[in-house]
């Protein structure tokens, strides 16, 4: 059974070229169910492109993306999300002219009122909508945005937008939560609180979390596994301690454009 498999995501020889640039050049790795896995690497290593390929925001040239036992490579992004692989964006994408709470409520699944015909029949969706509103309020509480619930999302600061992205992704009740540099621009104390609450969530609900992080130190403490990318390939995958002492990783960080920041 796919459900009971210890591997939630298996990526096999993923490739995507843009013109002459091999953004992702044969990446293979696995993510264990219930783990916190970090994807790290220097600038230009192909981390965000890999995320795009996994979540349907870009189409791989070749390769397999086996999520929960079925290949989702090349599937539309909204389908991948409904299957339970939900991502956030490094450059936040808030719905500026909608309220903060609406941003979060949007992400709820199983709302029959989202279908065109059902929209005309409020009795079919109103009670679910109340549940969603309460759930969204709870998620906002969790990321510390309760006070902003009725504000337009466009009025949020950069750090708050990161939190809103996270809240929206959590609201979708993902099985695999994919976070693209979620801590950049978030105040460190709050960042630690959020990491702790993600850690709690995975123990309670079996959530699997995959991070992209530029800065190794941020994620080393809480990661079970670390995947290191460089120049479009996976250099190594292992425990934080094993990765930290791997000479290839050290070389990649020293040679691979970490001076671009």
């Amino acid at each position: 059974m796919a459900e009971s498999s210890p591997t939630i995501l298996e990526v096999d020889d993923l490739r995507r070229h843009y013109g002459g640039v091999r953004a992702v050049d044969g990446a293979s790795f696995t993510v264990q169910r219930g783990s916190i896995t970090s994807l790290i690497g220097p600038n230009g290593a192909g981390k965000t492109t890999a995320f795009n390929l996994l979540t349907g925001f870009a189409r791989p040239d070749t390769g397999r993306v086996v999520f929960e036992g079925s290949d989702v490579a090349g599937h539309r992004s909204d389908r991948v999300a409904r299957r339970g692989m939900v991502r956030t964006f490094q450059l936040t994408r808030v719905l500026g002219k909608m309220r903060v709470i609406e941003n979060v409520m949007l992400a709820a699944q199983q709302q029959p009122g989202e279908r065109f015909v059902t929209a005309f029949l409020p009795t079919r969706w109103r009670s679910r909508e109340e549940e969603i509103r309460h759930e969204a309020a709870a998620v906002l509480e969790q990321v510390g945005l309760s006070e902003k619930a009725e504000d337009y999302a466009a009025t949020l600061s950069g750090g708050q937008r990161k939190l809103l992205e996270l809240a929206r992704a959590l609201m979708a009740r993902p099985r695999l939560l994919m976070l693209d540099e979620p801590m950049a621009g978030v105040n460190p104390t709050l960042g630690r609180e959020i990491l702790a609450s993600l850690d709690r969530l995975r123990h309670e609900t079996g959530l699997t979390v995959m991070f992209i992080e530029h800065d190794m130190d941020v994620v080393m403490d809480i990661s079970d596994e670390v995947i290191v990318m460089g120049e479009g390939r996976v250099i190594t995958q292992g425990t934080p301690d094993a990765v930290r002492s791997d000479q290839r990783v050290i070389d990649a960080y020293l040679s691979g454009g970490s001076g671009h920041e």
Partner: peptide, 29 residues
Amino acid sequence: RHIGRSPWRRALRAVRENEDAAAAVGKPV
């Protein structure tokens, strides 16, 4: 106006604001 407060219209407005954000939480853009 009757469908103005419906989840369908919320999803539609989300598409207007940012298609990627809507797709990332599973809305069929």
